[in-house]
């Protein structure tokens, strides 16, 4: 069990490489950088979560950071799939997006997101938010089925 525990992952679903890099910078500050798997669009995410070896992948995921505006399959659609499938429905999902639109917030919550964060434009605030969110969900939060 310990082997699996150390390998738990943050799944980062983000199409913008600059945002992805900044997100990983921030997670580095929480010493989580080696546990991030970056998927560049919604279709890749669907493949990873519901394709071959999905069960192995899902077992390792401790947190999903999900952007909304994604090419091919958008973030809300990915969220819907995650909540509809038995094996993924309890995975913690945090929406991390530039959109402040109330309609996006409402739809994301209706589809069952665990949290919704608006990416700040300014670097320092962005780093602080992502660092704290990484620490909270990876270290403090207890998910179903965890021994501790």
């Amino acid at each position: 069990m310990t082997a699996i525990a150390t390998e738990t992952q943050v799944l980062l679903i983000e199409d913008n490489p600059a945002d992805a890099e900044l997100t990983m910078d921030a997670l580095r500050e929480s010493h989580l950088e080696n546990r991030v798997l970056w998927l560049k669009d919604g279709a890749q995410a669907i493949d990873h979560l519901f394709g071959e070896e999905a069960a192995t992948h899902i077992q390792r995921i401790k947190l999903i950071l999900l952007d909304l505006q994604l090419p091919r399959v958008n973030g809300l659609e990915v969220l819907r799939r995650i909540r509809n499938e038995t094996q993924t429905r309890r995975l913690p999902v945090v929406i991390l997006t530039s959109s402040q639109e109330e309609s996006d917030v409402i739809r994301a919550y209706d589809l069952g997101t665990n949290s919704y964060l608006v990416k700040p434009v300014d670097y320092d605030s962005f780093i602080t938010i992502v660092k704290e969110l990484g620490l909270y969900w990876m270290l403090l939060n207890k998910s179903p089925g965890e021994s501790k």
Binding site: D19, L22, S99, K119, Y123
Partner: peptide, 16 residues
Amino acid sequence: SHDLRAPLRAVDGFSR
């Protein structure tokens, strides 16, 4: 709200 803010974040972030 989305498309203009993302590049700005890159400008600020990468300057930093």
